[in-house]
Design a protein around this nucleic acid. Structure first.
Lengths: 216, 216
DNA sequence: TGATAATTTGACCGGTTGGTAAACATTACA
DNA sequence: TGTAATGTTTACCAACCGGTCAAATTATCA
């Protein structure tokens, strides 16, 4: 019969572990580039360096691949927010969060784009996870921010929209990379744009465009 | 022979104008929801309320439809930035720009998502327009901002990244709508979230999280 | 009205896509 | 080593998809 995934033994072989990793890596490459419907199983198989039926031996359907990938990505995607520490200094916590999210946009653009693709398509496969684990985590951290604001440690503001704005500004450099590059031009093409972005965003979130510290 | 588009007369019939409008409306609906490859001509034809061959009589290929749509959307997408006035008051110009972009996200989410989809896929069809008209316009407005900063009317900052951050924060409410709704929950589901967002973004861009005006 | 051009449709086609069947190869292990 | 489970491949299929064709229908106007 040859059942593919951990069926009989419930413990995965080393070869299974390795191949599944290999497949998910390829799937990430292709899905993030073309979206779910735009990606083809043949493409993924080619990138993974194996035949299509062999790939389908490990993941029975294209959708199963996508699901496995999405759940994993969502998890690492949320890591920076989890590190958000209620006991820390508010300003430096927010600053660190921005920096971490920006580093993720720089180092894991494919993951960011995969996620963006999924949300953009209406999140058909992860609506539950958005309304469940994600919402819970955000609620928790929003409460932290609310308390900080109440204590006068940061300005009073809507914590949810604060989180949204950090997400959007940082992920922008991964999801809209083509546009950013096109606008900045060749000269600014290097990785320097991430440092510029970090500098700008830090200023934006901490003092806005308010004229204060900068002397003429 | 029956040439479809303005070929012989070069002047489009009223019926042509109407049908093409009808098709582009349907195409916007479908493309914005599923992306280029995810959308099917049959789907678009069904939404447009006509047969597939009839649709292909007006737009010879799926790509022609997409191109027509993208160029039009890019144009309206840039309108708010065009209104950015060098002679106006810096703070209120930036505030107006944010408000206009946010209104677009609220009133034309499909257009925003269509554009996001295209950029996310690497902008295969509009790279030239990004590097041409779009870059030119942004360069022009960035220069305006730079002068304002130099004159001490707003804080010194990178004008390009300022524009990026306005784009990303506002479009987020269209492109990531599903996520925003999921996180805010049902109670905040109404259109009130756009007012909250406007309030927050105004605060963010003008004074950041800096504690200043808000008394304990 | 008649004729010509514009519009619409059902039937169809070749290529692609997700997935299957079954034979073949390799590994694990008694 | 033998054998059963696991892994891999070739050949294939049915559904779908973008697009064509020729015939039918409708609008235009002399």
């Amino acid at each position: 019969m040859a059942l593919p995934r951990a069926a009989r033994t419930q413990r995965r072989t080393r070869i299974q572990e390795a191949k599944e990793e290999q497949i998910l890596e390829a799937a990430l490459e292709v899905f993030s580039l073309h979206g779910f419907r735009g990606a083809t199983v043949d493409q993924i198989a080619e990138v993974a360096g194996m035949s299509k039926p062999n790939l389908l031996y490990y993941f029975r359907t294209k959708e199963a691949m996508h699901r496995a990938l999405i759940t994993r990505v969502l998890d690492t995607w949320l890591d920076p927010l989890r590190e958000f520490d209620a006991e820390g200094n508010p300003v430096s916590e927010i600053r660190s969060y921005i920096r971490r999210k920006l580093e993720m946009a720089r180092d894991f653009p494919r993951e960011s784009r995969l996620f963006a693709n999924e949300i953009l398509q209406g999140a058909p496969n992860i609506e539950d996870e958005l309304k469940g684990p994600l919402k819970s985590l955000v609620d928790e951290k929003a409460e932290v921010i609310r308390v900080w604001a109440k204590a006068g440690k940061i300005a009073k503001c809507d914590p949810y929209h604060l989180i949204f704005s950090i997400w959007s500004t940082t992920q922008h450099y991964a999801d809209f990379d083509v546009q950013v590059r096109a606008v900045l031009g060749q000269d600014q093409a290097g990785e320097g744009r991430f440092e510029d972005a970090a500098r700008f965003l830090e200023q934006l979130f901490l003092t806005g465009l308010h004229v204060s510290e900068q002397p003429a």
